[in-house]
Structures are given as C-alpha cells and as structure tokens.
Amino acid sequence: MDWSWDRAWEIAPELFTRGLAVTLQATLGGAVLAFTLGLALALLLRSRRPWVRLPVRGFVEVVRSTPLLAQLFILYYVFPSTFGITMSALTTGIVGLGVHYATYTAEVYRSGIDGVPRGQWEAAVALNLPRFRTWTGVILPQAIRRVLPALGNYLIGIFKESPQLALITVVDVLGLARILAAEDFRYLEPLTLAGLFFLVIAIPSSILVRRLERRLEHG
C-alpha cells in the first residue's frame, strides 16, 4: 500500500474544480447536440423519400458501429487539413460526443414516436391539424415524455464517455489527472480520485433516472 493522503488532498481541489468544469461542459454540450441532432435524425429516418432515408440510415449505422475515438480522430486530424475546419479540442470533443450519441438517441426517439397510440394521429387528422402542429402539439410532447428516462441514461452515458476527450488533449478530469500524475510520476492518487469522481456522480444519477422511470410508468 503506497497511498499518500497528503498528495490526494493536494490535488483533489484542482481536480474537482478545473477538471469538473471541463467535464461538465463537454457532457452538457455533447448532450444538447445529441438530443437535438438525434431528434432530427429520427424524423429524417421516417421520411417517405428513399433518397433522404437511406443515406441517413447509412450514416447512423456507420457511426454506431465504429468507435467514438476513431470519430474524434477524424474530427481532430482530418477535418482541419482536408476541409479547413479547425475547432478547439473541447469543441471537437463536444461535436464528436454529440454526433456519436445522436445516432443512439435517434433510436430512442423512434421508439417513443412509434409508441404514441394510432388514435392520436387519427384525432389530429380529424381535427384538421396541419402536419407541423400535429408533430409539435400532439405527437412529440407525448413521445418525448415517454423517452425521458432513456435520454437521462444517455446523458449519464455521455458523462461517463467524456474522459475519452483526454485522448485528443482536452484537459478534463482524466486529462488533468494525467497531467498531475506526470508531475511526480505518482499515478495512484490522481487516477483513483478521477475514478471515484465519476462513480460519485454516475451512481446517484442512475438511481434518480430509475426513479423517474418508475414514476412515469405509474403516473
């Protein structure tokens, strides 16, 4: 056992403030993008025109079956030199997380939309609601309420996967832990604190989501 409490106390404040700020930015930014882009993808996947539906389907399949890290590399190494799009490491990470998880949330929205009873569609037609109003006033509010717990789980998922951004030089909790470890080659304290930090946030959050799930089922 070689654990140093002194070192742990010394680095904890920085890890929990500076690291946390970046991790939360990445998580929230990624989630906002994933939740909006996911809805757009879900709607495009329902298109009646095959030339809209099929390319989107292909894009979703490719993104879902390849690693987030490969996608981050493409955004970080290929985009600046090939398309002239240069973003900061954190922005690159947010776009990567957002696009990757959008392909998952698209599936969530799809199941939510499919779960809205047929009668709701028929009622909207009977009331002569325009298509746009049918979606925004009738279908989506019910569909999104239904999938809130699933989206909550993906929010936690994005939070947990965000340390991958450290591999494209973002100084989040894990990135900062690596820098602190490199100062004196003591890896134990920073990496253990980083791990605990994720556990302490992720476990209570998933318990909250489970409660929300139960409440929506019964209410």
């Binding site: 947990k160 340390p163 990496l191 791990g195 556990l199």
Partner: peptide, 21 residues
C-alpha cells in the same frame, strides 16, 4: 461499480495505478 465509470478510466487505473498498489 463497473457501470459507474467508463472503460478508459478503468483501463488507466488497472494499467497505471494498480501496479503501485
């Protein structure tokens, strides 16, 4: 425990921190 953190954090811990212990 293992769902609470991601693979990358666990991998770093096993590779860098566990040998210290």
């Amino acid at each position: 425990f293992f769902r609470g953190t991601s693979v990358i954090v666990q991998m770093f811990w096993i590779f860098f921190a566990l040998p210290v212990l």
